[in-house]
Design a protein around this nucleic acid. Sequence first.
DNA 1: CGGTATCCCCGTCGATACTG
DNA 2: CAGTATCGACGGGGATACCG
Lengths: 228, 228
Amino acid sequence: MNAMGASYYQFCPVAKAMELLDERWTLLIIRELVTGSQHFNELRRGLPRMSPSLLSKRLQQLQRAGIVDRRPDGSSVCYVLTPAGSELRPVVEALGSWGVRWIGELGDADLDPKLLLWDMHRNIDHASIPEGRTVVHFEFPDAPRKARHWWLVITKEGADVCDVDPGYDVAVAITASLRRMVEIWRGDLSWSDALGAGLLEVDGPEAMRRALPGWFTLSAFASVPRPS
Amino acid sequence: MNAMGASYYQFCPVAKAMELLDERWTLLIIRELVTGSQHFNELRRGLPRMSPSLLSKRLQQLQRAGIVDRRPDGSSVCYVLTPAGSELRPVVEALGSWGVRWIGELGDADLDPKLLLWDMHRNIDHASIPEGRTVVHFEFPDAPRKARHWWLVITKEGADVCDVDPGYDVAVAITASLRRMVEIWRGDLSWSDALGAGLLEVDGPEAMRRALPGWFTLSAFASVPRPS
DNA sequence: CGGTATCCCCGTCGATACTG
DNA sequence: CAGTATCGACGGGGATACCG
């Protein structure tokens, strides 16, 4: 339980906590683990701009700090939060609630479609999804060519993100600017407001179009009330 | 509302928050402001190892981020939290509550007597203090010569910390190792347990000795329940 | 009291390539 | 899938001195 970042030389619990947590990326790793990611490459998908060596280093630091436990699991490896680590959930929640209220402006570079789809894929309300296989197609006309089309293939077992057409029948096709779709995900904009304002186009059978908003549990912070 | 630390290039509210808050010292400044410090040199006293240039830089960054407001106030200057800044209190509280539960081990270098007295001086329950002037003398036998003796001079108007004998009559004299005193402050150890175990010596009139524990509101995190 | 100015080192981080 | 290896730059931040 020590030797992570530089010391503040203070006995204050906030300072002692920040010695462990104030380094770049650290709390985002915790966020990923709180969210349920367990494997190295799963963490990487949630932290695409982080180099693997740095992720590796941070995970080792978090182990030494008693926050993360590394469990070899067959041929695989699981990273799981210790009891101490699990109790960081309120910290992550407080940060996210603050962030969604006070940091409204997103840069274009913050709008990563891969990350958006990755987030959506792990927040699907499977109880609301029809039987069998459901495919949702996303088109972001403003995104660069290679990031314009995405498919979410949802089955009882889970969901897969594809950046090439998997070939299955599409249940619903969504066309919207990447920025609007991110705003919906974050709860800055509601499905109905977006539809009403023509910011979003949804194609597919009436029943499917109606059901669509229920399929996705939006960001955990979407329901945080906004200021003013 | 931007341009502080490096971007994570994520739309996640936690990431956007950490872009502003993950730099060294930043959340400790927020802690000081939440605690009630307002002036530059007041902040410095709570952050003794921080260089003034860095504090200045951070305050400017926090202004640009819309978290701190700089108010020239006569010949003086007040730094106060904006509404957005005030809402960081839950973040600081979550961090402190976590820290006090899971970071028990303090290094010797974390035990700064000046910081301890500074903290105590601004957490005095003036309603419990006797009329007139009350002086409490602290002796830390394990501290370096120049940091061994401290006096807290408490009046209705406030409290002053002295590292030289102010000459007034002493109401109560406390002798304890610096580490024990910090533990009491943090709530790791109770006054009564410390007294019972002989870890603490209190000299003075019976009534004063009895009343002493009521004079100090301990650290805001002292009452957080501990694990196991 | 409320800050700037300057200097320089060292460590962090990013990028990329590669391995069992 | 789960990481290591290597490398270089850049700038963060510590120390100290100084100003209005």
